[in-house]
Design a protein around this nucleic acid. Structure first.
Length: 425
RNA sequence: GGAGAGGUGGCCGAGCCGGCUGAAGGCAACCGCCUGCUAAGCGGUUGUACGGGUAAAACUGUACCGAGGGUUCGAAUCCCUCCCUCUCCGCCA
């Protein structure tokens, strides 16, 4: 959420940001609504001030055993006038809130302008895609022939966009989760969290998934709970409604969770395999930072995610999302894309964002400035470190062998009970 | 699921037979004093949001004592509904 005062005073800037984002949201009604609200508020507050003053007077008279009946009688009219003046105000405020909650964050000045994916500049590339001297198979073929991935039975159990991992397939996911968490906690300074996999609507509002993106979420019927689409939701909300000591910043947390997404609107995209699932595993990195160092933190956080790919020997590149491709709440986002031989291209495996104070304002995440003693909104960041399912896919495909087996990346072997190759058993 | 207790400021905690309570007291933080340094001690300051006001302050209005509604001239205090937490019992990984 943007600051109301900021929108009022910089409506041009906000409209420019909407244009850059290729958003069709209009601020047409904002000015009128805002003025109407302020006019009404002033009227109501003036009457209330009158009532408060009279009430105080009544209290004083009664204490002094004087008659206050006349004043009380007159105040009945004022009270009625207040009720009158208040009608319509809740509606105006609700409309203001709705408008404000649906305005996306303003892209950071360093974000390149562009319409979509094709305009995202590549800022660095690591590793060289391997040359294959045999026909490359995709992870579905590899996984099914090794009997470690089973899509048919997953469909029987649940439905489309689910996957059953078996044997070494399940083991790889577990190994990756442990590997990633160990690196981030042991070497990158994050504290491990294991949060609830459902969260209430207030939390989803806090990180910006609600009210705009309810259609992408699984809601638990008859409750106020939604299944989390990312650990960002429960982990960032750990500090919701809190005023933090400046000294604890940057607060760095990591968490493994499964993620649940409806993937509504992606019919026909990535239907094959485990690229796009209703449920997938992810290790998330979250940082709560001071504004001054937040974009520096974004660089670090991104490099922490990249480190996992480096150790696994998986070629990747990093792109900056352009204004038209950025998420609703983000001020700046880097996507890390891993090389998938079967597709002959890089595919997103991590998305690292700085949200400036956009989430913090919604979620009331603040800190006390040590020098001024004032409370300030913190900046929030997060990134995948990494999407585990897609990492498994990348390993299967990049490390496939002509005989159908898959070599286990060296860094992962300690987590795989020492085995160096996955073969059909 | 049954019974009981409770939700107050950064934290703890009074107030809860309605007005003098935006809220005692303590802690914490900050600023002074004191001090060789630290500690102790002494004095002072410190909520949030939205308006008005100002060059910026000062200043000022309103709202906020879990959420929403009601009674009343007036509600942290009374009434209703809901949410949450804790304790005991039951059930259970």
């Amino acid at each position: 959420m943007l600051d109301l005062k900021f929108v009022r005073e910089n409506i041009g800037t906000v409209e420019e940001a909407l244009r850059k984002r290729r958003s069709d949201l209009s601020l047409e009604g904002f000015r009128g609504l805002d003025e109407k609200r302020r006019t009404m508020l002033t009227a109501v507050e003036t009457l209330r001030a009158e009532r408060n003053a009279a009430s105080e007077e009544i209290g004083r008279l009664r204490r002094e055993k004087q008659d206050a009946a006349g004043l009380m009688e007159r105040m009945k009219a004022v009270s009625a006038a207040i009720k009158e003046a208040e009608t319509g105000l809740p509606d105006i405020e609700a409309r203001m809130d709705a408008l404000l909650l649906n305005i996306p964050n303003i892209p950071d000045a360093s974000v390149p302008d562009g319409a979509g994916e094709e305009d995202n500049p590549v800022i660095r590339t690591w590793g060289t895609p391997r040359e294959f001297d045999f026909p490359v198979r995709d992870h579905v073929d590899i996984g099914e022939s090794l009997d470690i991935l089973d899509f048919e039975r997953a469909t029987k159990i649940a439905g489309g966009r689910f996957c059953l991992l078996k044997g070494a397939g399940a083991r790889i996911e577990r190994a990756l989760i442990n590997f990633m968490l160990d690196v981030h906690t042991g070497e990158h300074g994050y504290t491990e969290m294991l949060p609830p996999f459902m969260a209430n609507s207030a939390s989803f509002l806090g990180t910006g998934q609600l009210p705009k993106f309810e259609d992408d979420l699984f809601k638990v019927e008859g409750t106020d709970y939604y299944l989390i689409p990312t650990a960002e939701v429960p982990v960032t909300n750990i500090v919701r409604d809190e005023i933090l000591d400046e000294g604890v910043l940057p607060l760095k947390m990591t968490a493994y969770t499964p993620c649940f997404r409806k993937e509504a609107g992606s019919y026909g995209r990535d239907v094959r395999g485990m690229i796009r699932q209703h449920q997938f595993n992810k290790v998330e990195l979250v940082a709560i930072s001071k504004p001054e160092s937040a974009f520096e933190e974004l660089e670090k956080l991104t490099s922490h995610a990249e480190e996992i790919l480096k150790r696994l020997g998986l070629p990747y590149r990093v792109v900056t999302l352009c204004t038209g491709d950025m998420g609703f709440s983000s001020a700046k986002t880097y996507d890390i894309e891993v090389w998938l031989p079967s597709q002959g291209r890089y595919r997103e495996i991590s998305s690292c964002s700085c949200f400036s104070d956009f989430q913090a304002r919604r979620a009331k995440i603040r800190f006390r400035d040590g020098t001024t003693g004032k409370t300030r909104l913190a900046y929030t960041l997060n990134g995948s470190g990494l999407a585990v399912g897609r990492t498994s896919v990348a390993i299967l495909e990049n490390y496939q062998q002509p005989d159908g087996s898959v070599t286990v990346p060296e860094a992962l072997r300690p987590y795989m009970g020492g085995i160096d190759r996955i073969v059909r058993r």
